[in-house]
Design a protein around this nucleic acid. Structure first.
Lengths: 176, 176
DNA sequence: ATGTATTTGTTGTATATGCAATTATACGCT
DNA sequence: AGCGTATAATTGCATATACAACAAATACAT
């Protein structure tokens, strides 16, 4: 870096500014980054509250989903949670290894149904107060409206489980 | 399951209902679950768009943060992103192994500063269009107001480092 | 100055997550 | 029936994430 770069490189300077602006645009404006930050903070808050019970909020949530969907197959959960099959497979295996869920023969020879064991139910009941504590704390911090907004966004983004309004046109299929 | 359970177990029945309600409360109402779902869908969208460039949005974002913070130490980034030290350490190592960032001696013998290499800058420029495409697509799907809401929530939850340049009133400090 | 506490980074261990490839089963069509 | 395709779950590999334990260096209090 001697003399050349300073004099003749108005272009290089421009590129540098360009890069800095780009970096700023992504660093401060990336939606994915924000949502991951949000996720770290929020998930961390629940897990801190749940630590005494030896369960993570991811596991508690999955267990609850098994109960809520009433003997679902892994595939059912996958669709509902937009979770990759392989992720789900392993997460369920861990729940099974902990004795919190069990499998019963399913409607198909290649599938099976899931149910929460009594131990799993007991755990859920034990952990409920801590879970509620974390949820309430965040509700207080963020406000009920923000909570609702987050739920609404999630619904809208996943093709909505609960917002069945506005069907534009079911005919326009885009290249099968 | 013979006859006993049906007759004498009004208490067991009650407990079962109780469990089902709890499961529903958590399965459908857990904020952490919603935010993680949101994160899966959104981060997945960016990564799909970025795949041709061989970089993930987590990495692109971290690289941009290094540039934006202008030769930060890992500790600076940790505070800004609310990322665990160990996570950051490994993520930075991978960026270094890819030749996208480098370290220079820091203000301290136990620390060092980070900067983006020319290769890293080139990658950022190359990937910019794809990143913008993903961001715009989500903006269209969610609406500008929702985007802003997500940013605001993140800021509020982290004690807000940034709160976009919008400074409507820099005077109104909210009771320290 | 000296001993303790704090800061900074790394490594071990574990979970969550996703993509690609594989296996097994079911389904549909000829 | 049999063949090709679609669906279901698992496994290999890689990254992101966090907690705990550690090592090195600095800061601080007396």
């Amino acid at each position: 870096m001697s003399e050349r770069e300073i004099d003749t490189s108005s272009q290089a300077t421009e590129e540098k500014l360009d890069f800095e602006q780009t970096a700023r645009e992504i660093a401060m404006g990336c939606l994915a980054g924000r949502v991951r930050l949000l996720n770290r903070v929020i998930t961390g808050a629940y897990n801190e509250a749940l630590r005494p019970h030896g369960v993570r909020v991811e596991q508690l949530g999955l267990m609850s989903m098994v109960a809520f969907l009433d003997q679902p197959t892994p595939s059912d959960i996958e669709r509902f949670l937009r979770l990759d099959r392989s992720t789900l497979s392993r997460n369920l295996r861990r729940l099974r290894e902990n004795g919190w869920i069990e499998t019963v023969p399913g409607p198909d020879a290649r599938s099976h149904r899931l149910k929460v064991t009594p131990q799993g139910q007991a755990l859920l009941r034990r952990a409920l107060a801590s879970w509620r504590g974390a949820q309430q704390k965040l509700r207080d911090e963020l406000g009920e409206d923000v909570l609702q907004a987050l739920f609404t966004v999630a619904s809208r983004l996943t093709g909505d489980e609960d917002t069945p309004r506005q069907r534009q046109d079911a005919d326009h299929n885009e290249t099968p």
